[in-house]
Design a protein around this nucleic acid. Structure first.
Lengths: 94, 94
DNA sequence: TCATTATATTTATATATTACGATATACAAA
DNA sequence: TTTGTATATCGTAATATATAAATATAATGA
């Protein structure tokens, strides 16, 4: 049953990153709009800049999103394929 | 807006429950075998009884699994439909 | 250069989660 | 009853996570 404990650890790591309302909101917004900068997220979520930035840092270091700078702004996009599949299912209306 | 916020909170709550290697292993095992008792999980996972039982308590109070007693044993099964869909995707090999 | 804007990092503190031994409960059989 | 077995709950120390203010960096334009 537990041949591959790593498998469970990795999956749990990813879920742990997703398992926060602000991060879910960020990721869902990025998926639906194709990308977004930090200032816009701040407005939407009503959280201070440093808080948003720290959540983005987690998403980034987990390989879920990536940011590309364009002048002053940094535009974030979702790059993890599993997340692209999981999120719509998670928010599926039934 | 409040509505949306609830949506993210609820989804995050569910993910947080799943986001633990032992609980993932339990749920995946239950899904694949159709059910299992605590003693068997203990053997498989090599964790003390109270630890397993506390993870089951979390899964139970989140409505992800339910247990039905049969004599001394309690057989657990997964009852959350989203989880039944999400887990196979999470562990899908590509 | 300096000022401004967008984002990241550091630091401190508060809160939540985890693990596990000890103990309690539920049931069955003697 | 009493004993043995399966599972649940309690107490709590160790660890992890969240938040936000303060500060730092990076890019741009005057």
């Amino acid at each position: 049953m537990d041949n591959d404990f790593n498998k469970y650890n990795e999956a749990a790591e990813m879920l742990k990153i997703l398992a926060h309302p602000v991060r879910l909101c960020i990721v869902k917004g990025l998926l639906e709009n194709g990308g977004c900068n930090v200032s816009h997220m701040q407005e939407c979520l009503g959280a201070p800049q440093s808080t948003i930035s720290q959540h983005l840092q987690k998403l980034r270091s987990a390989g879920i999103v990536t940011g590309s700078r364009n002048g002053l702004e940094i535009k974030y996009t979702v790059i993890d394929e599993r997340v692209k599949v999981l999120l719509p299912i998670l928010f599926n209306k039934r």
